[in-house]
Computed example of a mutant assay.
Amino acid sequence: MTVDVADLVRTRTRHPEAIAEAAARRVRRSLLGESGRLMIIAADHPARGALGVGDRKLAMANRAELLERLCIALGRPGVDGVLATADILDDLLLLGVLDHKIVMGSMNRGGLQGASFELDDRFTGHRAEDIRRLGFDAGKLLLRIDYDDAGSLNTLESTARAIDDMAERRLPVFVEPFISRRDAGGRLRNDLSAEAVTKSIAIASGLGGSSAYTWLKVPVTENPDDMARVMETTTLPAVLLGGDVGGSAAAQAGAYEKWRGALQLPTVRGLVVGRSLLYPADGDVAAAVDTAVGLL
């Protein structure tokens, strides 16, 4: 599909109500199909100022190109849906590509990449009431905890309240937890050691007044062999995140192998992957997506 930016802008300018109308007529589906697995394409990175893929710092900056890549991915067999912020989901609604797809709203995007306030990851995206009003299917939030940053307590509290808001509406919420810390240069790093990922899962699992609608979105640990032990920490269903695996074909192949092993674990129900599938090293979005679907 070729995206006509002028047409999207024309609709947004003259008929902004068309977005709500498209959401209202969207054909919905259950969260899990017959396979009990999920394959979600993630595209919520731009709203946090995270536009880079590998050594391409502004790879995701061209919105028409990003939308075209998303349309290719969503059209592949086995792809269940998309995770994105309101601006991208609104465009996809207008393009008419979200019927029979899981639509997941990204809830907190306030912790801008590289900012001094990056850990103050406030809920500047979808609210639970927005997800319900638009007929979307789930929400996602990012939870980064730095033991040396007292502000992490505010993040924990706001995350718990968001989980409560989603549970009250019986809407699934995917929580992406990390133990994070700043390196000597002040850059925020996520700790992917088995101990850190185990702690982050334990903390996230206990947030809110109910875990009935809580899913986890977790990374594969530095040593993939640790994943079986790490995932024993919870009974909550989980999906694997992709992250930026780098710009080489070898790095992409390595990521596939890590996902393949972790997907065999009983609590792991699928993949939520964005940049590595939308911007693969060889440029072939369809092939990258098909390979990831094949892992399920």
Rank of each mutant, 00 (worst) to 15 (best):
V293R: 06
V173I: 15
I72N: 01
N154G: 13
V103M: 07
L192E: 06
E176I: 07
R14Y: 14
P16T: 12
T124C: 04
L134F: 15
A160Q: 08
L207T: 08
I201M: 03
L8R: 06
L74P: 09
R161D: 02
M231I: 02
I72W: 01
A288C: 11
R144Y: 06
V103Y: 09
P266R: 00
L67W: 13
T233M: 12
K217Y: 00
D80P: 08
L156T: 07
G105M: 05
M231E: 02
R25M: 14
W259N: 08
S30C: 11
Y279P: 12
L188T: 08
I40F: 05
A250E: 09
D225T: 11
S248T: 15
N223R: 14
V272N: 00
A162L: 09
I203E: 06
Y147A: 15
E157W: 10
R144T: 11
R109Y: 01
A59P: 04
L58F: 12
E176Y: 00
R189W: 02
L141S: 00
G36P: 05
T233A: 15
H15W: 14
L112V: 05
A128L: 09
S276N: 10
S158G: 02
Y147W: 11
D87A: 14
A22V: 12
V220C: 02
A22Q: 14
L216C: 06
A202D: 03
Y213T: 07
L207H: 10
E222W: 10
G75P: 13
R63P: 11
L94C: 09
